[in-house]
Simulated assay, not measured.
Amino acid sequence: MGKIHDRIDDRLRAFIGAQPVYFVATAPEQGGHVNVSPKGYSDTFTVINDSTVAYLDLDGSGVETIAHLRQNGRITIMFCAFSGPPNIVRLYGTGRVVVPEDPGFPELLARFGPHPGVRSIIVVDCDRIADSCGFSVPFMSYDQDRTLLDEWAQRKDSKAKRAYRAKNNRESIDGIPGLSPGETDPAVLHS
C-alpha cells in the first residue's frame, strides 16, 4: 500500500503539481499546539530538486509555521488526491524560513505566481518521501481558487500590512517568536 521513495521522481512531481490544496504541519519543540495549515493557489508550491521543495508563505492570521521552523525546523507537507486514483504523498523534512532580506529570496520568488501578500518562502529539505493509499479520502470536486487572500492583501498599503504583521505575526499562539520587527515590513518584490 505505502512506499518510501528515495527522491521526488517525475510521477511524484506530476501528482504534487496536480493537487489544488496541500497541508503543512509543524509543532513546537515540546508541549504547545501542533499546527496544520491548508494551503491553496497551485502556483505557490514548487519542487526545486529531487529532495527539496518550497512554498510561498502568504500573509495569514498566525505565524505558527515560521515560529516552529525557527525553533526546531520540523515540518511535514501532505498532498492527497480528492479526484482520480487514491493517493497521499507526505514530504517530511527540515524547513527554513527565507525572508525578503535574505540573499536567495529574489531567485526563489521567481519560481512562483504573482501574489501580493508575500511574507516569506518556506524551503524544505526532505529526508523522507512517502506515499500511501488514500483509500478513505473522499472524492471532492475542485471548482476554483478563492481569491480572497490576494484581494485582502491588495487592499492593504505598506503601513497597514506592517501594522497587521506586527499585531498578528510576531509570535505563535504558544509565545514562540515568529517575525522579528524588521521582518514585518511587506516585501518590496512581488512574486
Rank of each mutant, 00 (worst) to 15 (best):
V89Y: 01
S172A: 08
I77L: 15
T44N: 12
D145T: 00
M78A: 15
D150C: 04
F23K: 05
H68E: 05
G175H: 07
G31R: 14
D150Q: 13
P28V: 01
S136G: 15
P138K: 02
V123M: 05
V36R: 14
D9I: 01
N168Y: 10
D57H: 09
G73H: 04
I75G: 02
V98H: 08
I121S: 00
G84Y: 10
A110F: 07
Y142A: 02
P103V: 06
A160C: 04
G73Y: 01
I48V: 14
T65H: 10
N49Q: 10
E107R: 03
N169A: 03
V123G: 15
P186V: 05
G95M: 02
V47E: 07
L12T: 07
K3D: 12
Q71L: 01
P103N: 13
S180I: 01
D50A: 08
F105Y: 09
K161L: 13
K167M: 07
L108C: 11
H33C: 00
S158F: 03
E151C: 01
V36S: 12
C133A: 13
F45W: 08
P20G: 11
I77T: 14
E183V: 00
L58M: 14
V123T: 09
G62C: 03
S51E: 14
E171N: 09
V89N: 06
P28E: 03
S37R: 01
L91S: 10
V24N: 14
V89P: 09
A81R: 05
R162L: 08
G95R: 05
L91A: 15
G62V: 07
P177R: 00
R90L: 00
D143R: 12
A54C: 08
P38W: 04
S158I: 01
H68F: 01
S61G: 10
W152G: 09
G182A: 09
D143P: 05
T76N: 12
R155I: 06
T184R: 03
P106Q: 03
A27W: 01
F135W: 11
T94G: 04
S61E: 12
L148Q: 10
I77P: 10
R111H: 13
H5Y: 14
V124K: 08
L109D: 13
S172W: 02
Y164F: 15
V53T: 09
D43A: 08
F105L: 06
P181D: 00
T76E: 06
S120L: 02
E183M: 10
N169Q: 12
A130K: 05
P186A: 02
E171M: 03
D125C: 01
G113E: 08
M1I: 07
P20C: 07
E64L: 00
P177W: 08
P138W: 10
D6A: 13
D50E: 15
A81P: 14
F105C: 04
H33E: 08
G60D: 04
G84P: 09
S42Q: 12
P20I: 01
E171H: 06
K3N: 13
Y164P: 15
L109K: 11
L108T: 02
R70T: 05
D9Q: 06
K156V: 07
D10S: 03
S136Q: 08
L108E: 14
D57A: 02
V123I: 03
S51Q: 11
G60L: 00
I75K: 04
K3P: 11
T52N: 05
